[in-house]
């Protein structure tokens, strides 16, 4: 992932997170995948044996591969074609309890911030509604990052709207894109410490992150916001999520 003024990293460890699921130990090839808007392009960047670790950083990756702010790393057991019409479907590093993940994040000359990352492709057409409770104040720069990956390599833009959840007042519209990491500066909207912004995208789903950067550079903060389903546990969470989204969207879009 690449965002302005920070470098991105991805730390990969070839070791499953538990000792009973998917004990794969075969050598794998690491491929970099990125979309040019029409096709997924791939390039082999390294190999890993069981037990290896590797750190990949955005400054060592060709800028054209990171034009959308995002390139994917895929561990593969077999060679991959240089151009693909869809993302590879085989899950090589895969477990469920817990999910097999690695660490991605950003760094600068002083510090780094980590996020336990992995991403499954999202539906090409889906909506996003999320509340952002960690905008910070003082000598800090606040950005919203929206990460989207779909099987379809098309890069399409769609509207994301910001509202104040308290009075449901409209704040602004901006754009997010598929197969991209979109960086949205938030400080221009002058949110207050008591505000809880809500973001709604009718056509593009994504994983939203709050990114805080100390103006001194000495501290970075990165965490994903929750989908509405995370406000509840057990039962039919999907049904509740649907109701929550419907209820908020009806009120926000009418306002």
């Amino acid at each position: 992932m690449k965002t302005p003024n920070l470098n991105g990293f991805c730390d990969l460890v070839y070791e499953s997170p538990n000792n009973w699921e998917n004990r794969i130990q075969k050598p794998i090839s690491l491929y970099l995948l990125w979309s040019n808007g029409n096709r997924w392009l791939s390039k082999k960047i390294s190999e890993m044996n069981y037990g290896d670790e590797i750190r990949l950083v955005t400054n060592s990756i060709d800028e054209k591969c990171l034009a959308t702010g995002l390139a994917l790393i895929y561990p593969s057991l077999e060679p991959i074609e240089p151009e693909l019409s869809t993302l590879p479907s085989r899950k090589v590093w895969y477990s469920e309890i817990p999910a097999w993940r690695n660490t991605s994040g950003f760094y600068n000359e002083f510090t780094q911030v980590s996020y336990q990352s992995d991403i499954e492709p999202l539906p090409s057409k889906a909506s996003l509604l999320t509340f952002h409770p960690f905008i910070q104040f003082g000598d800090v720069i606040n950005n919203l990052l929206v990460l989207n990956v779909t099987n379809d390599p098309k890069i399409q833009s769609g509207k994301i709207s910001m509202f104040n959840s308290f009075d449901k007042s409209f704040v602004a519209d901006t754009l997010i894109s598929t197969n991209s990491l979109t960086t949205i500066p938030l400080d221009v909207y002058s949110f207050k410490p008591t505000d809880l912004p809500v973001f709604y995208s009718p056509e593009i789903a994504g994983i939203p992150f709050g990114l805080g950067i100390a103006k001194s550079g000495k501290m970075l903060s990165l965490e994903h916001t929750h989908p509405p389903a995370s406000l509840v546990l057990h039962g039919n969470r999907r049904a509740i999520q649907g109701k929550i989204k419907k209820s908020w969207i009806e009120k926000l879009v009418k306002t």
């Binding site: 003082g138 000598d139 800090v140 805080g212 501290m219 970075l220 903060s221």
Partner: peptide, 14 residues
């Protein structure tokens, strides 16, 4: 949110 050494920016975790 956790703030270390009065850095002025918190690290958040759910």
């Amino acid at each position: 949110g956790y703030e270390y050494q009065n850095l002025g920016v918190k690290g958040y975790v759910h």
